[in-house]
């Protein structure tokens, strides 16, 4: 169980690392509006929040 959790976390790290990096970042680095927010601002906070939720899901205590 613990191994799977660690593997998930590592995958999460790699995923977010790619999401927060170029070239993906250059796709959203433009003067644009998404849902009333600037594109880059929205994108960065969205990925960030996604990361937080994902971590919380992975590490939450599983019911026995």
């Amino acid at each position: 169980m613990s191994d799977r959790r660690e593997a998930n976390l590592l995958l999460l790290f790699i995923t977010v690392l790619i999401l927060l990096n170029y070239p993906l970042l250059s796709l959203v680095d433009r003067q644009d509006h998404w849902f009333g927010f600037p594109a880059l601002y929205f994108y960065l906070f969205f990925v960030w929040l996604g990361l937080i939720v994902a971590v919380a899901l992975v590490v939450r205590k599983r019911k026995k």
Partner: peptide, 17 residues
């Protein structure tokens, strides 16, 4: 400026290990 906070957040999943 967000890079300074995204870095630590990015590392957080690896804290477990």
């Amino acid at each position: 400026f967000l890079g300074v906070y995204l870095g630590p957040s990015l590392l957080a999943p690896l804290w477990f290990v």
